[in-house]
Write a protein that binds this DNA or RNA. Structure first.
Length: 119
DNA sequence: TTTCTGACA
DNA sequence: TGTCAGCA
């Protein structure tokens, strides 16, 4: 039988949040989430952790940096549906990357990033 | 098959 | 952050 009720694997969390497993592991390192571990060392996420990552992902998917998304985590209320969170573009400057369907080595984008001091 | 850690691009 | 190696 499965482990505990509501507990999910990193793969399931990745699919539920749209985040990569790589990102989730990195966020654990940063202390943003503390999943439990199975005797075998595999991460197991409780429902609260999944919701926390969904909220974080919601901010990230709207253009916020990890630091900004993490900061806004404490002010993300349940009554405020994640789909309604304001996009970063509406608060700060436009995200150059969203203006072009290009990858990440475009010379023009490079200039813009250097100008904005974005990494 | 899935996840884990470490490491490189 | 993506991705690969080598395990469990």
């Amino acid at each position: 039988m499965g482990p505990k009720p509501g507990v999910v694997s990193i793969g399931q969390v990745a699919r539920a949040t749209g985040l990569s497993e790589r990102q989730i592991r990195y966020y654990e390192r940063k202390g943003i989430v503390r999943p439990e571990r199975t005797p075998g060392g595999h991460r197991v996420f409780r429902p609260e952790e999944v919701e926390r990552l969904k909220a974080l992902a919601a901010w990230l998917h709207r253009g916020y940096t990890l630091a900004e998304a993490e900061a806004r985590l404490s002010e993300t209320r349940p009554e405020r549906r994640l789909e309604e969170l304001p996009a970063r573009d509406a608060v700060f400057r436009p995200d150059p990357a969203s203006l072009y369907p290009l990858r990440g080595h475009d010379p023009i984008l490079r200039r813009i990033r250097e100008r904005d001091g974005d990494g």
